[in-house]
């Protein structure tokens, strides 16, 4: 019962954090980052103004940014509840306790970092760190999810054959996907910088003006495709349904992301594609953590 409650709390926090990444991405693609020109307040009050504002705040953009902040607070509360449960039930389980506390630290730090981002008027480097911390946060939360799930369903994970090479390739995959996402935000940043200096360039011309590391992003994308195909092939006959499912998920998501990436080049970066390109990739970060812990059968020792 306790374990079940803790597991559910972890799942809620994880889903909320993915949702928050989505809303954060929406802030970025709609250019609403400075919608509230200050932090933590938005304009003169804690809530954005509702009608035309004398201080020239674009109220639509303010509300988009405010929604992002509000969901950040909701996620924060959800993680505080997770920590309360962890302290009450799992004082002796250092893995879960430590991971819960770490997730609390990361959600607070990333919230403040969102404020720093506004103070520094959307400095691109802080933007990237903000994204990186969000990815680490979903990784920690995914870890808590799968660990507590395994505690509830110990029998399910018994008698699995270990595959050290597969485990290692999942670690490599996690590192590469994080690098790939950060490279993607780097491309976005560079596009913005080139566009500031050359406001009259079309999106297609902007892409051409980019540094050569856009090719590196594509190259790494295809590397990830082959790696995910390998992971899928190794998991195809796995006894665990969840492992087989996640194997297909990873391969499928990589294919979708490559497709979306190419779409953005041919259709000049429609904003919604950008949003799902980033968001879908961020799912892979947590899923790989779950898969890694699924196939490492510590209960057999």
């Amino acid at each position: 019962m306790k374990k079940q409650l803790f597991f559910q709390s972890a799942v809620v926090s994880t889903i909320l954090s993915y949702f928050l990444i989505f809303v954060g991405g929406l802030v970025r693609v709609s250019g609403a980052g400075m919608g509230c020109p200050n932090w933590p307040k938005c304009g003169d009050g804690w809530m954005p103004p509702t009608n035309i504002d004398i201080n020239q705040i674009n109220t639509t953009l303010a509300w988009i940014e405010f929604t992002n902040r509000m969901f950040g607070v909701i996620l924060g509360i959800s993680i505080i509840i997770l920590n309360v449960l962890a302290v009450f039930y799992f004082r002796k389980n250092y893995n879960l306790l430590f991971a819960s506390i770490l997730s609390l630290i990361f959600v607070i730090v990333n919230g403040v970092l969102g404020g720093v981002l506004v103070w520094f008027e959307l400095n691109p480097y802080i933007k990237t760190v903000h994204m990186l911390f969000a990815l680490i946060l979903v990784s920690i939360l995914s870890y808590i999810c799968i660990k507590s799930y395994k505690m509830i369903n110990t029998t399910l994970f018994k008698g699995l054959k270990k595959n050290p090479i597969l485990s290692k390739s999942l670690i490599v995959f996690w590192i590469l996907i994080v690098v790939e996402i950060l490279l993607g935000t780097g491309i976005r940043t560079n596009l913005e910088l080139v566009s500031i200096e050359n406001p009259l360039l079309s999106k297609g011309e902007l892409l051409n003006a980019l540094d050569s590391y856009k090719y590196f992003h594509s190259f790494l994308g295809f590397t990830l495709f082959f790696l995910s195909a390998y992971i899928y092939s190794k998991l195809r006959t796995n006894k665990l349904y969840i492992a087989r499912f996640l194997g297909i998920f990873i391969l499928g998501m990589i294919v979708v992301q490559i497709f979306l990436g190419e779409m953005m080049i041919f259709f000049e970066l429609p904003q919604l594609t950008r949003l799902f390109h980033t968001w879908g990739s961020s799912w892979l970060v947590g899923v790989v953590i779950i898969l890694y812990n699924c196939i490492s059968n510590e209960y057999d020792k």
Binding site: L26, S30, I64
Partner: peptide
Amino acid sequence: GIIGLFTIDQATQSRINN
């Protein structure tokens, strides 16, 4: 996706209205 499209569209509109 629909929420995303709607929001992006609203943001674009608000820039023109602004």
